[in-house]
Simulated assay, not measured.
Amino acid sequence: MASEIAKAGGARPLTVWYNTRCPVCDAGIRLQRSRLLEAVKAGRIEFLDINLKPDALAQFGAGLDDIRRRLHATNENGRLLVGADVVLEIWRRTPGQAWIAKLLGAPGVIALTRFAYDRFADLLFAWNKRKGRW
């Protein structure tokens, strides 16, 4: 869908790369995707499984394990977002959740948000690895 929009000269969507082999990650993205159904249908945001295209973000130096560990996305300008910054951007676009992004992305709070996200992501990555999901 993103390529169709780009060919038509429209704006590129927020493209979120996530790991469907992680049950927690997959469930979270499924929930957000349902909340963002209109944006998905309109091509303003897309959610893609990194396991189907492991080298998708190689030009940014992001390998498969990087994306399995933390969400990655490219925004409308082609800029790479990682981790908590992806979650904040998704919340900004989700009806009724922009206030969460504003609160957790505020100056003075964003560093704590990123730290908490990264620690949770590290634990989740290790748990998935122990469970043999990749």
Rank of each mutant, 00 (worst) to 15 (best):
E4L: 15
E4R: 15
A6C: 09
A8G: 07
G9P: 04
L14Q: 01
T15S: 14
Y18T: 00
N19G: 11
T20Q: 09
R21Q: 14
C22P: 01
C25F: 06
D26T: 08
D26F: 10
A27G: 13
L31P: 00
L31H: 11
R33A: 15
S34P: 02
R35A: 02
L36N: 15
L37Y: 10
E38Y: 05
A42I: 07
I45L: 06
L48M: 10
N51S: 13
L52R: 14
A56G: 09
A58I: 10
D66A: 02
L71K: 06
H72A: 01
H72W: 00
A73L: 01
G78F: 04
G78S: 04
R79H: 05
L80D: 03
L80K: 08
L81A: 07
L81M: 08
V82M: 06
G83P: 02
V86I: 04
W91A: 03
R93I: 00
G96V: 09
I100G: 06
I100A: 15
K102W: 10
V109R: 13
A111N: 07
T113H: 07
T113A: 14
F115G: 07
A116L: 14
D122M: 12
L124W: 05
F125C: 13
A126Q: 14
A126D: 13
W127M: 09
N128M: 11
N128D: 15
